[in-house]
Simulated scan of single mutants.
Amino acid sequence: MTPNALNFSGGPGALPATVLMQAQDAIVALPETGVSVLGMSHRSDWFRAILDEAEQNLRRLLGVAGDYAVTFLQGGSSLQFAMIPMNFAAAPQGPPAYVTSGYWSNRATTEAARVTPRDVLWDGRAGHYRQLPDLYALEVAETAAYLHYVSNETVEGLQFPVCDEPFAVPLIADMSSDFLSKPFDAGLYSMIYAHAQKNLGPAGVTVAVIDRELLERIPDHLPAILDFRTHVAHASNYNTPPVFAIYVLTLITRWLLNDIGGLGAIEQINARKSKHLYDTLDAFGGAVRIHAAPQWRSQMNVSFTFGDVRLDEAFVEHAHELGIVGLDGHRSIGGLRASLYNAVTETAVDTLCNALRQFGAAHL
């Protein structure tokens, strides 16, 4: 297997082999046009059709109708951390509510504070971000502009369960690292956003799915490019969009729909992958520490350590000799991390688990 197939990086992550092959051909010449995708005009009929297909494929996968706008933006989640309070936290709404459950939600909470007063309803920093709160048990003010949380903490390997009941205030979720990994009720959310380089393709594009009622509260003084209504009105083509990233995203939605069979099917695959890896790590007992508390373990990102920097580094080297890449933990917590995004195959996880057992037999 090649390093492409054994890429466990937290991002940019693995891409499906069939998508890589199609993208490779498109860089030389698109079959529909004969022109490289890297040189295709964002104003061309071809790209308009790609934008339309990407939107319709996402609507099919998520089950959302016309009362939601689907937009393709730039700037990653980091830009959304500022745009969301700029657009949706204006008076007469009260301060928005935030959940700080890990590295990325802390970034969101911090950035929001630069824009607006906000209430932090829960902060897991004191416990080193090893567990999550029950969202439905949080005391959210009825006047809150919205409730914001990160559905899957990429760094620490924590994942909220899917929401199953409506909230009294608009619910906004950063789903960057578990978007399209399993079914969920999109109708419970006022906004969902997710940047690419994990389950959506290469970096450069961010998907935002927004309830049109939420758009009505946007103030009129914002710069046009920071106003969600601008991007909705221009059908994601206000300024030059990342054509290649959106093209690959479209290929991935085709793969999910046609090759995998939808979100229900990919959920079953992801459940098997994560169970296999967690079972392998748990078999080491106290020799391996998984960062997340058991009830909050993520199916997408598995953060763990052998408890010794030298052993962690030795395992990265051992894995690299087998063609496995992307296992270094995030700089904020160190250790190791294996990301099991949609394109990571069960065979790749088997290879990783075998490498862990080999290493454990030799060093533990």
Rank of each mutant, 00 (worst) to 15 (best):
L6Y: 04
F8V: 12
S9L: 08
G13E: 04
A14M: 09
M21E: 03
D25T: 14
V35T: 14
S36H: 06
G39L: 09
S41R: 04
S41L: 08
R43F: 10
R43Q: 14
D45G: 09
L51M: 08
E53I: 04
A54W: 00
A54D: 02
L62Q: 04
A65P: 04
Y68H: 12
G76N: 05
L79F: 11
L79C: 07
P92L: 06
Q93E: 13
P96H: 10
Y98D: 06
V99E: 08
Y103T: 15
Y103L: 07
A108M: 07
A108T: 09
G124S: 13
H128Q: 14
R130F: 07
T143G: 11
Y149I: 13
N152Q: 14
Q159T: 15
P161I: 15
V162T: 15
V162M: 13
P166M: 11
A168F: 07
I172V: 15
A173K: 09
S177P: 06
S190T: 10
M191I: 10
V207A: 09
I210G: 06
L214D: 09
P219M: 04
D220E: 15
D220R: 10
I225D: 11
S236M: 03
V243L: 04
F244D: 00
F244C: 03
T253E: 01
W255I: 00
G262F: 05
I266N: 03
Q268H: 10
S274L: 06
Y278K: 04
D279R: 11
D282K: 11
F284Q: 06
A292Q: 03
S298Q: 04
S303V: 11
H318P: 03
G326C: 09
R331L: 10
G335V: 05
N342K: 00
A348V: 04
V349C: 04
C353G: 01
R357M: 08
R357N: 08
Q358K: 01
A361H: 02
A362G: 00
A362M: 03
H363F: 01
